[in-house]
């Protein structure tokens, strides 16, 4: 590796802008939120500055802990489902010819232009009884009468995967494009069928990026609350739904802040654990 140049004052100057942005739009609001989590809530009004642990104590009730675990569980599952679908999809996408590749990529990425509300509401309709896809199945004679597929756990999972899928593809795409096609060809000349090549070469080489895509989906879906709210019954609600509910409906901002921080810390722990497992097992191969 070549010797690195000492960063000049100009380099720091360029860095100043993003650092300032991060400070103003992330660190300070987060600090305010931490402070707010200790404020005193005034029922029927708003809140007053204070330093009390009521909000945090309330958080450690079984119902919220159970919701937190449920949130982490369903989002990990969404990450898993997304990767299982997005990884082969993106791999074969990068092996396609230029023209269909770009066309398909545009279709996938255009889903990004839909807001979460629209996605949630569309699936709400599609999975509902009145105008949902089961009506088509009835019309085709596959089913006797229309049924509702939501609210349900599967519907929430589907919605979460739907909104996270394009991001997952976007994370995987640059790395997989750079995968030298000669590497898979080398595996084939050494006797590996395309299936073996995929598992013994492509997946292991792409492991770091698979983990990155998985974590991205996890963190991303953990912050989503509209999907779970629309497509699930209260027992399928994630902690994010409760945060939104407390903040906007109940006007209990201090408690919402405490929950938000709790969720952030939990997700950081999960990310750290997954990252640790990844680096540990990589050293063994």
């Amino acid at each position: 590796m070549s010797e690195r140049e000492r960063p000049s004052a100009r380099t720091y100057g360029v860095l100043a802008i993003p650092v300032a942005m991060l400070l103003i739009f992330f660190v300070i609001p987060f600090g305010i939120m931490v402070a707010t989590s200790f404020y005193h809530r005034v029922p029927g009004a708003f809140y007053t500055p204070a330093f009390e642990f009521d909000n945090w104590q309330r958080l450690f009730q079984p119902v919220f802990l159970e919701r937190a675990l449920f949130s982490i569980g369903i989002c990990l599952l969404a990450g898993f489902v997304c990767i299982v679908i997005a990884f082969p999809f993106t791999y074969f996408l990068t092996r396609m010819r230029r023209r269909p590749q770009v066309a398909l990529l545009i279709v996938v990425l255009s889903a990004l232009s839909l807001s979460e509300v629209i996605v949630a509401f569309s699936w709400y309709l599609l999975l509902g009884r009145a105008s949902g896809i089961s009506n088509i199945l009835v019309w085709l004679g596959v089913m006797k009468e229309a049924v509702a597929y939501q609210p349900s756990f599967a519907a929430v999972l589907l919605g979460l995967c739907y909104i996270a899928f394009p991001y997952c593809v976007l994370t995987l795409y640059p790395q997989l494009t750079r995968l030298d096609p000669e590497i898979t060809e080398a595996a084939q000349t050494l006797g590996a069928s395309p299936w073996r090549t995929f598992w013994s070469v492509v997946v292991p080489i792409a492991r770091p990026i698979i983990v990155a895509g998985f974590l991205l989906v996890f963190v991303f879906t953990l912050g989503s609350y509209i999907i779970a709210f629309f497509l699930g019954s209260p027992k399928h609600w994630t902690l994010s739904v409760f945060i939104a509910d407390q903040a906007s409906t109940n006007a209990n901002v201090p408690f919402a802040a405490a929950m938000a921080i709790f969720l952030t810390v939990l997700s950081l722990i999960v990310v750290a654990v997954v990252g640790l497992i990844e680096s540990r097992t990589r050293r063994l191969t």
């Binding site: 060809e185 084939q188 000349t189 590996a192 070469v201 492991r207």
Partner: peptide, 25 residues
């Protein structure tokens, strides 16, 4: 016959070594 049944050894221009494996691997 597909490449993987041809009984052929090949050295590629990029060498195409597997970066996730050691020399022995």
């Amino acid at each position: 016959r597909p490449a993987y049944t041809r009984d052929i050894g090949m050295v590629f221009q990029s060498l195409a070594l597997f970066p996730h494996l050691h020399v022995a691997g």
